[in-house]
Amino acid sequence: MPVPEEVLAAARAAIGVRGQAVSHRIELGAIRRFVEAIGDSNPLYTDAEFARTTRFGGIIAPPTFLCTLHAGGAALPVRFGRVTLNGGNEYEWFRPVRPGDVITAQSQLADVRAVDGRSGAMLILTSEIRYTNQDDELVAIGRSTGIRRE
């Protein structure tokens, strides 16, 4: 079954609608648990003394740590598919994230497509999250592609 027109239309109507901005204080312990889960033993993320000797002058969060800072999802008024898979992630970083920073994440739906794939119809949703810090500086932009399939 292809993606129904009304589902596609409802999803398209949500493009550009911003979700609620959510602020997160960056905790050292959260960074530590995250790098442990990945299995990344880089001391830049955990060892203050080592991190002081680097260009960053202190501990920073690893690149993909941003994915832990959830943004309020713009409620998408559609139901389609029995599983949602992550099709891809893209991050562009402008500034490092440090423990003690307060990072605000805000998402918006950027694009909607319907595709007839090998395994049936798929609804492909691209969303963008902007991350800003306590000084209102843009820290990073994340883009993700969600695939809803039957």
Binding site: T54, P62, E90, E92, P96
Partner: peptide, 22 residues
């Protein structure tokens, strides 16, 4: 994606700044 970031930063060293990963 986290493993790819680990790959890049392990190679590039602690004075590198990752600008983009897709």
């Amino acid at each position: 994606a986290g493993w790819l970031a680990e790959l890049v930063t392990t190679w590039a060293g602690p004075d590198a700044f990752v600008r983009k990963i897709a």
